[in-house]
Design a protein around this nucleic acid. Structure first.
Lengths: 223, 223
DNA sequence: CGCACACTGATCGTATACGATTTGATGTAC
DNA sequence: GTACATCAAATCGTATACGATCAGTGTGCG
């Protein structure tokens, strides 16, 4: 055979559906029909099934036996639960990644945060959220524990899929957020202990979460 | 139809393989052949495939395209990574579950820990590990955030699948562990804040992890 | 007019079948 | 004796086919 066969069909199906959910082409509640997707991909339903089940395991789609799959609903509770989970795991990942934060890394992070600061004028929530995601990825990206890294990435991915950035709901957080990022980088530059980094990072996340909770008229998170 | 059809075949397959891994009937490295399992279950390979992929998503089996699935290897790094992940998430789950810890709950937890204390004489690592799992389940079980709860349960499940309890490797930790459990319950009884509970619980987990690391001649965890 | 029930179309769950890929073994040349 | 090419068996990946199940609709009865 000449064909390269780089990825299996179920992998292709997974990528396709996954991307469409992320870009919002499939919005929450959208009915994912195996046969339709299979036809579109030019393959049978079997690989599509597998892809859908994988997405289910990741929490991006909801599946009911003998009924079918739909893109997971973004109920406000789900958003909060995901935020809360990230508030616990991401700071830990960042602290564990501290060893990799050298001078080069630091200047890159500073530059990115500076770009975010510039973005504050004529505020564009989407662009800002994208850069915010990138900034945090820079923070936790070098975490040496693959489980934890995976969990953090899934969390962010879920939030992205919800297309409900905090900054859309509570725009004033953007300015505070940039300031807190700087504080975090200062802390890292001064060779703070991992525990200190974790605490500061968690505080940053907690501020965002609690601002959202307050805006929604709810109690702040207990931790 | 008279049949109840309580679970789909892929669900049955999932349960079967999952249990066999947990009980150790399928030990790490064991080759999971779709056809063989299907034959044993009296069904075709398709549902088995789905079950295997689910187990892969949970990290219990390793899957290679066109080659097949094997029960995940328990390399010591994996064990440590799982322990470290749990060290971060479980205390948070416990703190979030604090609201549900009333007098009745407390007496149940005390009773269980007392049983563990009795088990210290003629020490049986397996029985002790089982009770320890139960005790911790009691701690985090009422966590209201389903994501976090799920992550904690997966972590414990993974550790169980590894059949490599800390108490097998470092038996002297058992005695300290029971004492720390009591301390934790005292703290809860005195209506400590969730943050305090989290800190104490994490310290407990950190002690276990670092004892293991020390026994293996490795550096203690940075957080 | 409203409710219960049977029917229908859509969709899922699984079996079977076959092509594709890998792996390990066998044989041959050097 | 070793290295490499070739081959066969085992196993996976996917297509197709058909039975099972569910949601919605229409009809009949109270």
């Amino acid at each position: 055979m000449v064909t390269v066969m780089s990825a299996s069909k179920s992998e292709v199906a997974y990528q396709l559906v996954s991307e469409r959910i992320n870009t919002g082409a499939y919005s929450p509640g959208y009915r994912l029909v195996l046969g339709t997707i299979a036809e579109e991909l030019g393959c049978s339903v079997v690989p599509v099934r597998e892809a859908i089940r994988r997405l289910e395991a990741e929490g991006l789609v909801h599946f009911t036996r003998n009924v079918g799959a739909t893109v997971a609903q973004v109920d406000s509770t789900l958003y909060l639960h995901t935020m809360q989970t990230l508030m616990i795991i991401e700071p830990a990942a960042t602290a564990l990644a501290a060893h990799a934060m050298d001078a080069a890394w630091l200047s890159k992070a500073r530059a990115l945060n500076e770009k975010m600061r510039q973005c504050l004028e004529d505020f564009d929530p989407v662009a800002f959220t994208r850069m915010n995601t990138e900034f945090h990825q820079l923070l936790y990206g070098q975490c040496p524990n693959p489980h934890i890294l995976d969990l953090v990435q899934r969390g962010w991915r879920r939030l992205a899929a919800m297309r409900a950035s905090s900054f859309t709901h509570i725009p004033y957080r953007a300015r505070e957020s940039v300031k807190e990022h700087d504080g975090l980088l200062d802390l890292i530059e001064s060779h703070a202990t991992p525990a200190q980094i974790e605490a500061a990072c968690r505080e940053h996340r907690a501020h965002t979460l609690n601002s959202y909770l307050k805006a929604a008229g709810m109690e702040p998170s207990v931790i």
